[in-house]
């Protein structure tokens, strides 16, 4: 396969990207299409806990919530995956057995990626051996900003190899890349190096996911599809807290990539508090009333 020259920059007009996003944000999503979007968004969530204080108990609670988001409403979809640190993978795996919910694990010295490659690969293999279905890796942003694109590429390819059958999500940490052109370039490198998904952020750096950054990445995925016929998934993560935001992201996907990407195999939300806002809105659509947040479990 022939790779593009990553030293070449694909120009991106900042003003144009932001105008496009603000136009898409004007879509008015009502009634049936809103209910459908809320449920779709729920089914795309990587329900996440990535804290130093995570314990097996907390992860078990999280998994139960993932299986049954809100018992009061029976026909809800489950979330797509539960996302945890490598040490918690086995706990989650056991808890989610038979549910169809994937276990995703961050790896490669998340969130900074500042460890020798060998350790990052070991970290990945450990998570995979523990049963992770998906690996969320971070790229070496320092190397990227230093212009060492080949190194970034090779590292991703190495992690992909270490993943075996597990799906690889490559976190670009766009909050540290500063320009849309860098985001575009990092997306291209990741996709060519073997990413199954590209992901905006770790959630540990501000700004995390934004809509303009997501649009730039979706357009990179579109170009990759035009050129190779291969569909790459997208995962914005961090900072998506409300159902309204989630629906706006779905509009971006729908009008940039179309129907084939509107499912959990090709689009995910990395989020924790989003789940409850979606549930609250779904209940509102069904009953006509907002319930207090106290009616929704905080897992």
């Amino acid at each position: 396969m022939k790779y593009p020259d990553f030293n070449q920059t694909i120009s991106i007009d900042e003003v144009g990207v932001e105008e496009r996003v603000s136009r898409l944000n004007k879509r008015s999503i009502k009634k049936d299409s809103k209910v459908q979007a809320l449920k779709l968004a729920l089914s795309m969530i990587d329900h996440t806990t990535l804290e130093g204080s995570d314990s097996p108990g907390k992860v078990i609670q999280l998994c139960k919530k993932a299986r049954q988001p809100h018992p009061a409403i029976p026909d809800l979809p489950t979330v797509a995956a539960v996302c945890v640190y490598p040490r918690m993978v086995s706990v989650a795996k056991k808890e989610l057995k038979g549910s169809g919910i994937h276990v995703a694990s961050v790896a490669t010295a998340f969130p900074s990626g500042q460890a020798p490659l060998s350790q990052r690969l070991d970290d990945t293999k450990f998570a995979v051996n523990e049963g992770a279905d998906e690996i969320d890796m971070v790229i070496s942003r320092g190397a990227f900003l230093n212009g060492e694109f080949q190194l970034v590429f090779d590292e991703i390819a190495a992690v992909k190899e270490a993943c075996g059958d597990a799906h690889l999500k490559v976190i670009l940490e766009t909050g540290e890349l500063h320009t849309y052109e860098n985001v575009r370039k990092a997306s291209d490198i990741a996709m060519h190096a073997g990413a199954d998904f590209i992901k905006t952020s770790t959630g540990k750096v501000s700004p995390a996911a934004t809509q303009p950054v997501t649009l730039v990445m979706l357009e990179a995925i579109r170009d990759h599809y035009y050129e190779t016929g291969k569909m790459i998934g997208m995962k914005p993560a961090g900072g998506i807290r409300t159902a309204k935001q989630a629906i706006q992201y779905l509009v971006l996907v729908k009008e940039t990539l179309g129907a084939a990407w509107l499912n959990k195999d090709y689009f995910r939300f990395g989020a924790s508090s989003l789940t409850n806002d979606l549930l609250m809105q779904i209940v509102k659509q069904q009953t006509g009333h907002y319930q207090s947040l106290n009616y929704f479990s905080n897992d």
Partner: peptide, 14 residues
């Protein structure tokens, strides 16, 4: 065209 923008999720009239 190569991408499929049909159905799956339609916008209700607004």
């Amino acid at each position: 065209s190569k991408l499929d923008f049909a159905s799956v999720w339609e916008y209700a009239p607004a």
